[in-house]
Design a protein around this nucleic acid. Structure first.
Lengths: 342, 342
DNA sequence: ATCGTTCGTGAATACGTATTCAAGGACAAT
DNA sequence: ATTGTCCTTGAATACGTATTCACGAACGAT
């Protein structure tokens, strides 16, 4: 069995042309006479030749590889993101080098590995990055974009849903429906998504003269949502409306309520965030704020492309409004129309 | 801003050594005197130098990149697989180049791209590959391993759960529990997982003198499971036990039964396959056959490593037994113990 | 003092491609 | 016939690293 990898030189030899010509045929930018092009292609087919992307990248200084750093892959929101992201990258002639990290520490340790592979850009989802690493990437001219996270005050590009507006919307929905004892089940502390959703929620409640609400910590997992809801519902003064920082916790909360035979939404309204596929299942029918994944991805790629072209572009942050998806887990005043969170 | 990438030559110059020595320090295989090593490392740190993995791979003929081809990423079983797979690859010093494909046609078109990047090996999950492509990979000496799929009779390595045994086990459970009208909701036609689960199920039923059972097509999605169950339960002779080819369809089936107020498991037993996280949620408590993901991944990596070392090793197929996870969606005879599907 | 061995280092080369430069040929205009 | 332009091609070089080869120094044994 022939184990020798065939190179453009081999093709050149049997096509009786120079290596340059073979290269020109396969980078198909340069002009080659049709007849010689055919000769080269015939020889290439015969040898099963395909250009070595590594050698090519070494000289073009472009790999067409985008690094994706992802934490929290088991949160059902992210597989969708990953799927759409890789598909969009592939459809624009790029490939994804995937790294899985734990949310906090690992990113900074992982990035050097990515950089060694000379990736054209980096997308970090559901995790953040230190300023030093950001600077290192900037120095090398490798664009970095945070997806669904950001670092307040830091100079890095980011794309996320407008979580503050989403939180405010939920506050309005609850108050308009006549709820009086509200609660918030939080996502992982110090993630920007959690902080912003809570901020918008609390801010709007205060504005409307309702400064007191219950708070339970959570971790963006089903189990933590379930447990947090149990704690809330075991109180002497249980809430009549719960805003969960994401859908998967909201489902946990719904199941906790179900175990206590609490009528949803009559005795308790629950609203989530994300609109993962399972939110629509008959067992849940979760009312939620939808993250506009497609738009977020398009925005990410736009920003990426612009910064690959000009690495010195200033960092920018894009917030994309979410949309209310009305289902059956929350009492909603009739007048309330399915609308974008502004 | 300094945009010039620093190379080992730059480091060599300011450390006053040769480029060879710098290389030796960073490939840390070869002997370098401690004092010169320190000089080099100091210079490297000063310049922010990190070796170029592409140039290195060009000469070592190893990229430490493993290509992962994945279809069906939104089936909740696969994010877990992907997460564990990438983590194991990372922990053994390798990285994952991820491709997303539609189950059928795309794989063959995608593989050439992967090969151009000189990946050390390829893992294909929930999809298959043509024999021609397999041969092409073999010719190049790039090991390919199918994960959770195989092509009967074809010469390729594969790792999967013992789906036939799983199907047989379910048949036994149903019959032992006294069920008489059985049904199977299928996964995507002509996937080996679906065929084997159905085969084991039907085979065992026939062996035990129960050759007739209902069949509904499905597509491994929640919606298809829901619809298939609706069709089954609308019959004049509805089944009293349904085996679903995967968990997500089983959840759809459970919800369909719930809408008809059918008592689970008294009036209807439902068993799934996979044991995805949601199977354990209180809303479902799905009895299922667990795929031993960790073992399957270890087996995959073992086979991979062996074939990277010796590309001429013969293809091999490993079937790993699944385990029954008893929850509340199926009536199970008391004597039945939580056991491995043999 | 001589020899053989080991250790540390540098010069040179290879990996497989893209790109620059020069050159040759064809061809039209004069 | 001469000049100039365009088109096509090949030779040479660069990309950034690992590795082979050779060489000198150091060192122990005799």
């Amino acid at each position: 069995m022939l184990r020798k990898k065939t190179s453009s030189n081999d093709v050149a030899r049997i096509a009786r042309v120079s290596q340059s010509t073979v290269s020109r045929v396969f980078s198909d930018s340069d002009a080659v006479r049709q007849k010689t092009r055919d000769k080269v292609l015939a020889a290439a087919r015969k040898l099963g030749y395909a250009p070595n992307a590594l050698a090519r990248s070494l000289i073009t200084r472009r790999t067409d590889i985008v690094g994706i750093v992802m934490a929290d892959m088991t949160n059902p929101f992210y597989p969708t993101v990953l799927e759409k992201l890789t598909q969009r990258l592939q459809s624009t002639g790029r490939r994804a080098l995937l790294f899985n990290v734990t949310p906090d520490r690992d990113v900074d340790d992982t990035l050097p590995l990515l950089l060694q592979y000379q990736v054209d850009a980096i997308i970090i989802t559901s995790a953040t990055i230190s300023s030093e690493m950001t600077n290192e990437c900037a120095r090398r001219g490798t664009p970095v974009i945070l997806f669904n996270r950001y670092v307040p005050g830091a100079e890095m590009s980011a794309v996320s849903c407008d979580n503050v507006a989403g939180g405010r919307l939920v506050a309005d929905l609850f108050l308009n429906a006549g709820h009086t004892r509200l609660a918030y089940i939080a996502g992982r502390k110090n993630t920007s998504t959690n902080l912003d959703r809570e901020k918008g929620f609390g801010e709007r409640l205060r504005e409307r003269g309702c400064p007191d609400w219950l708070y339970e910590p959570g971790e963006y997992t089903y189990e933590s949502g379930f447990a947090a809801a149990q704690r809330l519902l075991a109180r002497n003064d249980p809430p009549d409306a719960i805003f969960c920082a994401n859908d998967i916790m909201a489902m946990g909360a719904l199941d906790a309520a179900r175990e206590l035979a609490i009528k949803i939404p009559d005795a308790l309204s629950i609203i989530g965030f994300d609109d993962i596929p399972a939110a629509g299942w008959p067992a849940y029918r979760l009312t939620t704020i939808q993250q506009p994944v497609d738009q977020m991805i398009e925005a990410t790629l736009e920003m990426l492309d612009a910064r690959i072209k000009d690495p010195d572009l200033a960092p920018v942050h894009r917030w994309i409004p979410g949309a209310l998806i009305k289902r059956c887990s929350a009492k909603i005043r009739d007048a309330e129309t399915t609308s974008h969170a502004k």
